[in-house]
Design a protein around this nucleic acid. Structure first.
Length: 426
RNA sequence: GGAGAGGUGGCAGAGUGGUCGAAUGCGCUCGACUUGAAAUCGAGUGUCCGAUGAGGACCGUGGGUUCGAAUCCCACCCUCUCCGCCA
């Protein structure tokens, strides 16, 4: 959530910043805010009088006055009058507050000053490439990963559609083992890099999705259990954001680095016909997520670490990738600055997103009311939160299958992964 | 699913209608004592709105009763214990 107080003081700057992302009209917010504050002043004055009356009656009763004493009767009458005035004001103020809140929740984060300005993914900026020496030399006979996988009998889509729907996969034998090995490999690396492993609930409530920014705007993207106010998590970012929701952390506890393996569930509404084959776009996939709670002054440095730690997995697996920085038009709702990692998929002759590393600054912290306090200092501050995939497991598997395929139809296992899988070749 | 208990400040835990935003203990901060530390003693210590003012809000959430609600009433949510079931 954007900072209403700052918006009030500096509306032009907010408007200018947001217009880099798209069209947003902030004037209804400012108007509602003005009305709300007016009502609040009026209301709290009435409440002050009401409190005063309450105290006066109490004092007089204590010093022996009878309840039907005219003086007390008069105060009671006034009290009733004040109450009826309040009962008119309160609902009005509540309504305005609720409306204000509901609009605020739909406003995305402000882009960072350093975020490249652009209208869509076409204008993202490539930051670097890595591992070009590992690119497959010969594109002759290169198969897409789903063909490799089905030939090896390690993944099956047809049967998965029978079990569930399209956009699901069943991993079989070495395929299941490879997935499991990748998860373990990624977690081990990230734990070594300083992250604490968590295994959160993957059914999560509406408040959690609101805190991280998936709701209210993107309800269509998540699966919901209608009976229970529970949703299937679209990414571990969501439960981990709420791990410290409504908490005031001690400053010494920061930074907090978490990594989490979870399945992720996405409805992929609006992507009909895109990536219909293979492991790239599924309703259910596995991911190892990195998440940070840091002090504001640390967040830019932390962002670099996050990126480095995600990259380290691709480097260890010797998978060629590039880093791009998202432009303002392609930035996710909660992010102020995002680097995507894109891994090379030779079958489509393209780099494909395998990780997205974002700094959300205080945006999620404000929505989730996640603060920290410095001992001896007055007041609290919002933490900064960052999240990044480290990495998407299914997409990693497809990259391995494609980049490590051999002319004889087998697939080599990256060296670093061999101890985890217990074999060198599929 | 059945029965019961309970949700109060960083934690524990008092508080059943009137200076209660809330006793007490622990923790924490500062100070004294000490060569230093521990122990002890003293002072302080919630959050939010608001202009670092006045004032207001907050004792699970939302309503209600009352001049006045942490305290009474209603609904909901959550947690715990026992039984059943179950991995």
């Amino acid at each position: 959530m954007i900072d209403l107080k700052q918006l009030r003081e500096n509306p032009e700057a907010f408007q200018a910043s947001l217009s880099k992302r798209g069209k947003f009209d902030l004037s209804p917010i400012l108007e509602l805010d003005r009305q709300q504050r007016e009502l609040e002043i009026e209301r709290s004055q009435l409440q002050a009088r009401s409190n005063e009356i309450g105290k006066l009656v109490g004092q007089k009763m204590k010093s022996g006055a009878k309840p039907d004493d005219p003086e007390i009767q008069a105060l009671r009458d006034e009290g009733n009058q004040v109450k009826s005035q309040l009962s008119e004001l309160e609902p009005k103020e509540k309504e305005i507050k609720a409306e204000l809140e509901s609009i605020l929740l739909t406003i995305p984060n402000l882009p960072n000053e350093t975020t490249p300005v652009g209208k869509d993914e076409e204008e993202n900026v490539e930051v670097k490439r890595w591992g070009e020496e590992y690119l497959p030399k010969d594109s002759e006979g290169i198969l897409p990963h789903w063909e490799i996988g089905e030939k090896l009998g390690i993944l099956n889509f047809e049967r998965s559609a029978r079990i569930a729907q399209s956009r699901f996969v069943t991993l079989i034998g070495a395929g299941a083992a490879l997935e499991r090995a990748l998860i373990q490999f990624m977690l081990d690396r990230q734990i070594a890099a300083g992250y604490t492993e968590v295994l959160p609930p993957i059914l999560i409530n509406t408040q959690s999705l609101t805190a991280s920014g998936q709701l209210p705007k993107f309800a269509e993207e998540s699966f919901k259990c209608e009976k229970d106010d529970l949703w299937l998590t679209p990414t571990a970012e969501v439960p981990i954001t709420s791990l410290h929701r409504d908490e005031i952390l001690a400053a010494e506890e920061l930074p907090k680095y978490y990594c989490a393996y979870t399945p992720c569930f996405r409805r992929e509404a609006g992507s009909y016909g895109r990536d219909t084959r293979g492991l790239i776009r599924l309703h259910q996939f596995n991911k190892v997520e990195l998440y940070m709670f840091v002090r504001p002054e640390e967040s830019e440095t932390a962002h670099q670490k996050l990126l480095t730690d995600a990259e380290a997995i691709l480097q260890a697996l010797k998978l060629p990738y590039r880093v791009i920085e998202l432009c303002t038009g392609d930035l996710g709702f909660s992010a102020t600055k995002t680097y995507d990692l894109e891994v090379w998929l030779p079958s489509s002759d393209k780099y494909r997103e395998i990780s997205s590393c974002s700094n959300c600054k205080d945006f999620q912290a404000r929505r989730g009311n996640i603060r920290f306090k410095e001992a001896g200092k007055k007041g609290t501050q919002f933490v900064h939160t960052l999240n990044g995939s480290g990495l998407a497991v299914g997409r990693t598997m497809s990259a391995i299958l494609e980049n490590y395929q051999q002319p004889d139809g087998t697939v080599k296992i990256p060296e670093a992964l061999q101890p985890y899988l217990g074999r060198e070749i599929l």
